[in-house]
Amino acid sequence: MIVYGSTISPFVRKVMAFAAEKGLALTIEAAGLGRGGPEFLESSPFGKIPGFRDPGADGGKDFCISDSTAICAYLEAKYPEPNMIPVAPIAHARTIWFEEYADSIFFASAAKIFVHRLLYPKMLKRPFDEAIAANAVDVELPPLFDYLEGVIPPSGFLVEDRITLADIAVCSPFVNLAHTEMVIDPARWPTTAGYVSAILARPSFAPIVAAERAMVAALG
């Protein structure tokens, strides 16, 4: 199975970590920002990453789909064990909520920091606006961290006291923040800081994060 994109995207990273927790080995092919070619566009008609291809899965034809949520749902349905999206109604709903929180609410602010402190100035050599990043750090993110600080259970897992898609989705954007040298203040958000650190140290995340850190360091 092929994932098109780059793990520098929190959504590609989420898919790769999700698959790793399920014991699945996916192949990444570079795509996005003008890369990928016809096969990528077949999997993602609007050029968004990640795209996904499961060769021969659709009656002998390749099955293609895009969007990290759709890809994770497909992998969960095809490979139901270990279960990563709970089936009990309340736990299922909470998992979907935390993924939405991560994808649409949290990363909407985190992306402003990543884009204006790393992507534009260092990776794309484009003009950037530090004021946008600073406002996200000082104004937008603190309430989102306050929320997490109040909902992370003592078990260190958001749902059912075990690793689920909820934890993978929520922690993935924190890697992008770390690439900008932003850290969670452990004095203000001790539970969140410890939670994120523990999830990102898991074997599903750690090799991905290490490879990305090396790439970012090479940018100077």
Score class of each variant (00 low, 15 high):
47 G>S: 07
82 P>S: 08
31 A>D: 06
77 A>K: 15
22 K>S: 07
79 Y>R: 03
93 A>V: 03
43 S>N: 03
71 I>M: 05
58 D>I: 00
80 P>G: 07
105 I>W: 07
81 E>S: 14
104 S>E: 15
79 Y>T: 11
87 V>Q: 13
36 G>L: 03
63 F>W: 14
100 E>F: 09
70 A>K: 13
64 C>A: 15
70 A>T: 07
87 V>G: 10
51 G>D: 04
91 A>R: 06
86 P>L: 04
68 S>V: 07
101 Y>K: 11
28 I>K: 07
45 P>K: 10
77 A>T: 06
58 D>V: 01
56 G>P: 01
34 G>M: 04
75 L>P: 07
82 P>F: 07
87 V>S: 08
26 L>D: 10
90 I>H: 12
25 A>R: 14
23 G>S: 13
95 T>L: 07
95 T>V: 11
79 Y>P: 02
91 A>M: 06
35 R>P: 02
29 E>L: 06
71 I>T: 09
50 P>G: 06
70 A>C: 15
66 S>H: 14
84 M>Y: 05
59 G>S: 10
74 Y>Q: 01
21 E>S: 13
97 W>R: 11
53 R>I: 03
43 S>V: 11
42 E>A: 14
23 G>Q: 09
76 E>W: 05
39 E>L: 07
87 V>T: 04
62 D>K: 12
60 G>E: 11
84 M>A: 13
89 P>M: 04
48 K>P: 00
28 I>C: 13
108 A>H: 11
20 A>E: 11
88 A>T: 12
42 E>S: 08
47 G>K: 02
82 P>Y: 06
93 A>T: 12
22 K>E: 04
107 F>R: 01
